[in-house]
Design a protein around this nucleic acid. Structure first.
Lengths: 336, 336
DNA sequence: AGTCAAAATGTAAGCGCTTGCATATCGAAT
DNA sequence: ATTCGATATGCAAGCGCTTACATTTTGACT
């Protein structure tokens, strides 16, 4: 790493003080146009770039927002992030991403790591986590938003949708079509409020009709294709076989459809399958997957705006709830 | 943002100098065990975390490696990153990710942004970019590696595979099966050496048998489902219709298969389709996609190790080439 | 008890930047 | 010409940390 030109070098080269150069760099409005140009020329000539550490130390800002997401491998988070990033970039703010792999301990570490890097704000997925993490955020006065989830009396600013209600709506549809032997492949609910809420929504829909989700018809599985496949294989082996499998997300549903095909059965003739998220994959499956579309872009965009406002010192920023859409594509039909 | 305890607060609270506290934080080996414990207790009690800017300013290191990738929406990069991140994390280094959306100008900006944040090293995808960016890296003496590509006389440290050879191998298989009316949906080759190399590989295989890729049978398309679909629709409208469509990646292939289905045709009976990358999606398509498996994990892991060695001052670090595998899944068959 | 490396700790000088305050410069109004 | 805000610039004090060097403490040997 070679020595880089400093603010002082620029100041000397353009015959002004370091203060003026700094002003040019930050709010050039307060510097005379002519001086400004002279300084900018020197900056270009020397190839100067501000030293991040110096700036951070002096101003205690980083123009950086952090985000901890479960994984980049699920396209749904990737897309939400993309929007978040674009929206932040437009305001000159960088996005710093960390992943937890759905591991609460790792998420806690990542939060600490991001705080240690002096972020100005934080985006978190879901609200289920260690109270210590929340306490830490409070102590530091760190602005943050919780996305991908929403409930009426959430104590944080949350920007998301009602996982429970969405899942209930989906389960209602399944029930309306006449399914009674219903199984669910849920995400791991421990430490994951979205997965838990989706499961609760399904249970609620069934309870409303005097039904219950048989313990043997519920499998919790990590959000991977392989886990979905195994879970479905287990469910298909039951007698009587379920006529519909509600999956915690699209990846699990894809795994389930794989298992169904391997078992020599057809979707939806023998078994109906539903997903959740509406990732691109959903329309590529055969048959295309009936699923719930989640407002990922809207969440990303709103999270960015809200955090920028918080950073600007605005408080009392409100939560936002977005709706979801049931996307009917054919993998769900009345039982044969 | 509330005021945080500083090193000095910790020093005062534990009755030592700031230097000692700093030593405890960095190489506790040089501090007496008893003192060390006292300091650590104070750190815990005060909830102290080091100030990143201060550290950066004083030591001029950030323990951060940057990466600029085209997009997070393609799972193949996401997975490579995951491995990279894990490997770096094990060495106490953070990964900072930026995306370019396949836009050279934006990539150049992202590189500058990362440099501005004082990264210790950089991972770049492919080697096609602005000479100014390379010049900038050279001037700053910034360690970097180029991944996802490899060629014999590349002037940089590159860690990847031979896109051209892999594509040629695939095209050879297509030709061996007897296809002669071959079409290709390539990624946009402008500013993308991987896409260009894959196209070149296909051309080379055909040339070796005295064939050429008809201009009308080549479409360049952005790496999205929609673009793949449109491109395929265009190709299917030609007379005579191609018997095989070689796609620049799996996403394009998925789009092509969608268009083929819409056109009332069947894969592979009426048209064969091949992909590239072997993302998870490939095995979920119907029929499952014949494609080229790319060593994404290996590249991520190796890139991390190489950069860590470079950071440690080691030079003359060598490039690495990994092989690819043709994964035969059924979407490619002899022409009907 | 005395000696003397080695080990442990302290001292203090920056690292590059921002910013409150002081000073200088400018233009328009008198 | 003089005055006086407004505007532009400079001065210099930190921000929190690391680290070269100086100093003190320790403990194994005489």
């Amino acid at each position: 790493m070679k020595p880089q030109p400093t603010l002082e070098d620029v100041a000397r080269a353009s015959g002004v003080s370091t203060a003026t150069v700094s002003r040019v760099l930050n709010d050039s409005a307060r510097v005379r146009r002519e001086t400004c140009e002279r300084v900018e020329a020197a900056i270009a000539r020397l190839g100067y770039t501000p030293h991040f550490g110096g700036r951070m130390l002096a101003s205690n800002r980083t123009d950086t927002i952090g985000a901890v997401i479960p994984t980049m491998e699920n396209a749904i988070f990737a897309r939400g992030l993309q929007t978040l990033e674009e929206e932040l970039a437009a305001a000159g703010v960088t996005l710093l991403v960390a992943t937890s792999n759905y591991d609460p301990a790792r998420e806690a570490r990542q939060i600490r790591a991001l705080l240690g890097r002096g972020i100005d704000g934080l985006v978190l997925i879901g609200e289920a986590r260690d109270p210590e993490s929340y306490e830490l955020l409070r102590r530091r006065g760190m602005p943050f938003v919780v996305v991908w989830t929403w409930r009426a009396d959430c104590p944080w600013t949350c920007i998301g949708f009602d996982n429970r209600a969405a899942a209930r709506g989906l389960a209602d549809r399944v029930l309306d079509l006449g399914h009674r032997r219903i199984a669910m492949i849920s995400g791991i609910t421990l430490g994951n409020d979205r997965a838990a809420a989706r499961l609760a929504g399904v249970r609620e829909a069934m309870a409303a009709r005097g039904l219950a989700l048989d313990a043997g018809n519920l499998v919790e599985a990590a959000y991977t294709l392989e886990a979905g496949r195994e879970a479905a294989a287990r469910l298909l082996a039951r007698a009587p076989r379920p006529t519909a499998i509600i999956c915690g997300n699209d990846v699990l549903a894809a795994g389930a459809m794989l298992a169904i095909r391997v078992a020599g059965l057809r979707v939806p003739r023998d078994v109906s399958v539903t997903g959740f998220d509406d990732i691109e994959l959903a329309q590529l499956l055969d048959p295309p997957l009936t699923t719930v579309r989640v407002p990922h872009r809207l969440m990303g965009q709103t999270a960015a705006r809200v955090l920028l406002r918080m950073r600007a010192g605005e408080d009392g920023v409100e939560s936002a709830m977005f709706g979801t859409t049931l996307v009917d594509r054919g993998s769900l039909q009345p039982p044969g």
